[in-house]
């Protein structure tokens, strides 16, 4: 994926020169290893800052929200599905965006990589499916495939589903991925055990809302947790309020979440709140055969009614 950058720069530069778009949203190098940070280019010269490698996990669809300009945006498979969701939800018009598609082989799990070293990581380089990681206690060459973010490891749509131009040839999708092994494990737990599982999962939450704010779907002008008239949920770190926030946020993403992993990646406390959204994603597949963000012309299951919608839960 390192090779994409020349093509990304070429396309972006052309779009800005020709005035096709007013800005291109991409990534620039961050100040820490394995961290690239979202940025924009408004002139062809700005494009020089762009980078592309296996540390561009942040979902750029989140940066389109409420912008008025004509925008070029670099989109991986998951980003493109979030963009499709924004378009079907009338959040943005297809014509307002120029999608530069970036077929993706998966982004790196920087916490997992950090956990393989005793000391802090100083630099990371990548080369042909390998990562060369230098830490205070030495250098290791690691297989990228073993260090994918959890959502990337089970990704079934690596290629952008919509694009105006591609930065590289499409990649082969992963076959025989079992997306829901962990969800099934929780489904088999008795209620009390499930309760304890989620109690423990969210025990470290500090209510900073990084998960919500990193999520491209959480674009409500006022989130229900911020409402004060009426106040739906308390604002302290009371465990019931904290869980209410996480449960309801997940439900608000049902049938919309593309498992881009933004929430989990953003969490400063390492909480895997994807265990909630994945369950709802699985239910949407089981009940409606629905995977979000794949088709601009299909309405999501929760805003349409079909004669064959399952109703065996109605007794």
């Amino acid at each position: 994926m390192v090779g994409y950058i020349d093509k990304i720069k070429e396309i972006s530069e052309r779009l800005l020169k020709e005035g096709t778009v007013e800005m291109v949203i991409g990534f620039q190098k961050g100040t820490l290893p394995m961290m690239n940070t979202p940025c924009f280019a408004k002139t062809p010269e700005d494009v020089g800052n762009f980078v592309w490698d296996s540390h561009c996990g942040i979902n750029l669809a989140n940066y389109l929200t409420d912008r008025k300009e004509k925008i070029g945006v670099i989109a991986k498979g998951c980003d493109s599905r979030s963009i499709v969701t924004h378009i079907t939800e009338n959040k943005i018009k297809r014509e307002q965006i120029f999608v530069i598609g970036a077929p993706c082989k998966g982004m790196m799990d920087r916490h997992k990589i950090a956990s393989l070293f005793e000391t802090e990581i100083r630099s990371v380089a990548e080369n042909d499916g390998k990562l060369i990681v230098t830490a205070g206690d030495g250098e290791k060459t690691l297989e990228k495939a073993d260090l994918l973010q959890k959502n990337c490891a089970v990704c079934a749509h690596r290629n952008p589903v919509i694009h105006d131009e591609l930065a590289a040839d499409p990649v082969e999708d992963q076959k025989d991925v079992d997306r829901y092994a962990d969800v099934r494990e929780i489904e088999t737990m008795p209620p009390a055990e499930k309760w304890d599982y989620f109690d423990d999962l969210f025990s470290a939450c500090i209510r900073c809302y990084a998960c919500r704010n990193a999520c491209p779907l959480c674009y409500c002008p006022t989130c229900f947790v911020d409402e004060s008239q009426p106040q739906w949920v308390g604002k302290s770190t009371d465990p019931i309020d904290t869980k209410t926030f996480h449960f309801l946020r997940a439900y608000h993403c049902a049938g919309r979440c593309t498992d881009c992993g933004s929430c989990e990646r953003a969490c400063p406390m390492g909480i895997n709140m994807r265990m909630l959204t994945k369950k709802l994603e699985k239910d949407c597949i089981d009940a409606f055969g629905w995977e979000p963000g794949l088709d601009l012309n299909q309405r999501p299951p929760l805003d349409t009614y079909k004669m064959d919608d399952p109703e065996d839960f109605i007794k």
Binding site: T37, P38, C39, Y63, I206, C208, A210, N213, A214, P268
Partner: peptide, 24 residues
């Protein structure tokens, strides 16, 4: 531009002192 307006920086910061008062 990149900021997502979460509270991570302020909540993890030792010198950020702002608070809000609520009745429950």
């Amino acid at each position: 531009f990149a900021c997502i307006n979460c509270g991570t920086c302020t909540y993890s910061c030792p010198t950020c002192w702002c608070f809000d008062i609520q009745d429950e």
